[in-house]
Amino acid sequence: MGSIAFSEGSSSDIVGERLSRCGQDDLIRGLTAVVTHLHQVVRDVRPSAGQWRAAVDFLTEVGHAADERRQEWVLLSDLLGVTALVEEINSQRPKGATPNTPRGPFYRADAPRLPLGADICLDGKGEPLGVSGQIRDLDGQPIGGATIETWQANPQGFYENQQPDLQPEFNLRGVFQTGADGRFAWRTVKPAGYRVPDDGPVGQLLGRIGYPLRRPAHLHFLVRAAGFDTVTTQVYDPADPDVHEDAIFGVKPELIGDFRPHRDPGGCHLWSLEFDFVLVRTRPGNRRTGDDTTCMQKL
């Protein structure tokens, strides 16, 4: 007696009150916010019962398309800008520091450790690219002993773990450690941009409405150093035609690389990229940034 009847106007309040009786931790507060906004979306869109079942069927298909090699939920988060928004909220840094971008689904924590100067292209296919730079702090001081991981697509726009039968194991990925001068260098090949997977429910839905689904050419980096915030980021090729409309909203002015063409003594065409990473010292009580096991993973 005396309880509010469930109705269109009271629905989120009633569910929210029921959740509040379970406690007040972060999970419950998050669920309450989701309920509030989801119920408002339903009130705004006013789907029929059939349309709502179709939406549930779509989400079911997304779940079925998620496995250890492919994460369709993460693709949905990425393409709707949610992943980028989470990064913005959790990795705010002062001017001059290297910004974060989404890690993507193709990261592998078991990539091999390699000596500086190694070649991470294991099949010899593509235009040679020399990558070098320095890891330093905001005062310009080098950070020795920092770890830098890299992974990238090949010249056809595919990562090694997308093509386990076509590319060598660990192709175009490696882990390096800087010397006392904070510098790093390795050899690779110039990556290509690509269309995000569109053979699953997310790509099919967004492709049907003409939503942008291409990513510009880029290299992934994950930089760690004791006492500093971890940086997970990407460096982009400014010559790629899709650099101004990245499907996952990762491109920032600070992350545009300078890919320079050269010719070796034999006349062969090659490229170089020099890029410095600027890290911020971790402050007590700061959220972890860029080093959490991310649930935001395509590209």
Rank of each mutant, 00 (worst) to 15 (best):
N161T: 14
N161G: 00
N161M: 03
Q162C: 15
Q162P: 14
Q162G: 15
P164I: 15
D165G: 06
D165A: 13
D165H: 07
L166I: 09
P168I: 05
P168W: 00
E169Q: 11
F170H: 15
F170L: 08
F170Y: 14
N171V: 07
N171R: 11
L172A: 05
R173P: 03
R173K: 06
R173D: 08
G174T: 07
G174H: 07
V175W: 04
V175C: 10
Q177E: 14
Q177L: 08
D181P: 05
D181H: 09
D181I: 10
R183S: 14
R183T: 15
A185V: 13
W186D: 03
W186E: 04
W186C: 05
R187G: 08
R187I: 09
T188P: 08
T188S: 15
V189L: 10
K190S: 13
K190P: 03
P191M: 07
P191T: 01
A192E: 08
G193T: 04
Y194N: 09
V196P: 00
V196C: 15
V196S: 09
P197E: 06
P197A: 05
D198H: 06
D199G: 12
G200V: 03
P201M: 10
P201S: 07
P201Y: 06
V202S: 04
V202P: 02
Q204H: 11
Q204M: 14
L205Y: 13
L206P: 06
L206W: 02
R208N: 11
G210I: 01
G210H: 12
G210W: 10
G210R: 12
Y211K: 03
P212N: 13
P212Y: 06
P212G: 07
L213Y: 05
R214H: 13
R214C: 08
P216M: 02
A217D: 11
A217P: 06
H220D: 10
H220E: 09
F221M: 03
F221L: 07
F221P: 00
L222D: 02
V223N: 01
V223Y: 05
V223P: 00
V223K: 03
R224E: 14
R224I: 08
R224F: 10
R224Q: 14
A225Q: 08
A225Y: 05
A226H: 15
A226W: 13
G227Y: 04
G227T: 02
F228L: 11
F228P: 03
F228T: 09
F228S: 04
D229G: 11
T230C: 02
V231R: 14
V231I: 15
V231H: 08
T232L: 03
T232M: 11
T233P: 08
Q234P: 09
Y236R: 07
D237Q: 01
D237T: 13
D237H: 02
P238E: 12
A239F: 11
A239P: 00
D240F: 05
D240K: 05
P241M: 08
H244G: 12
H244A: 15
E245K: 00
D246F: 00
D246S: 12
A247L: 03
A247F: 06
I248G: 12
F249C: 12
F249E: 10
G250E: 15
G250A: 15
G250I: 07
V251E: 13
V251T: 03
K252H: 02
K252E: 14
E254H: 02
L255N: 04
L255D: 03
I256M: 14
I256T: 12
I256H: 01
G257S: 10
D258A: 13
F259W: 12
F259K: 09
R260L: 12
R263V: 05
D264T: 09
P265E: 11
